[in-house]
């Protein structure tokens, strides 16, 4: 497992604290994350329910269970050297602050011609305490986790020789985030529960990794 130091900003104090980017997690890491995230998710939903907030305004991924999702795909092999699935994450103060599950097989660019491969991000999620949930007064503990997860994806895509190309389907509440990452919105995908499909091209990946620099 490769670990790279990074920083996350504590939202309350603005303080930058040390964090780690992990590029190959296994099932034990996933179970660690789920066992911390699941109770928080349900406390959050209970508060939203008690406050009379309609379900349409709840975080759309509140019911996600990563282990169940993996089992439904028929595999829990996320840590193997040859596994096409790669789980990566951001850890800070001994807790997982965000996870991203990617696959390098079976997905081709819908923008680049010639069936070019890309890294497909199956799931990307920040820890539930990092969500903004105004209805119950929850401010995120750390900011910038989503962007760091995206960076893990782009860098893995580069390491695979995919030149930073990434594809994903987004929940509607996350559409804005992926637009801010510079991805192309290719619209609703009827083959994928009507979710919007976003893709990051090679050029967009370069711009994402080097914000402020002009493309060649």
């Amino acid at each position: 497992m490769s670990v790279t130091p990074t920083k996350l900003k504590k939202r309350a104090s603005g303080e930058l604290v040390g964090a780690e980017l992990h590029t190959r997690l296994d099932l034990a890491d996933l179970l660690d994350a789920e066992s911390a995230w699941t109770p928080w998710r349900f406390r959050m939903i209970k508060q939203l329910h008690q406050a009379g907030i309609p379900r349409a305004n709840w975080p759309q991924h509140w019911h996600w269970n990563w282990v169940h999702k993996l089992l439904s795909k028929g595999t829990l092999d996320i840590g193997g050297a040859l596994s096409p699935l790669r789980l990566m994450g951001v850890k800070c103060e001994d807790e997982w602050q965000g996870l991203v599950l990617a696959t390098c097989l079976g997905h081709q660019s819908r923008i680049a011609k010639g069936g070019m491969d890309l890294l497909y991000l199956k799931y990307l999620e920040s820890a539930p305490w990092n969500l903004v949930v105004n209805e119950i007064g929850q401010a995120p503990r750390y900011s910038g986790v989503g962007r760091q997860l995206m960076e893990l994806g782009v860098r893995l895509s580069e390491a695979l020789d995919f030149r930073g190309r990434i594809g994903l389907h987004a929940l509607p509440q996350a559409d804005g985030f992926y637009v801010r990452c510079g991805m192309t919105d290719l619209g609703d995908d009827p083959r994928y529960e009507g979710l919007r499909y976003f893709e990051m091209t090679e050029e967009q990946a370069r711009a994402f990794l080097n914000p402020g620099r002009t493309n060649r």
Binding site: S83, P84, L105, D117, L160
Partner: peptide, 18 residues
């Protein structure tokens, strides 16, 4: 696919193994 030959072989191996 604009991949190196090594990258093609790696992808093929991952697919075969999976």
């Amino acid at each position: 696919k604009e991949l190196s030959k090594t990258a093609v072989i790696r992808q093929a191996l991952r697919l075969y193994q999976a």
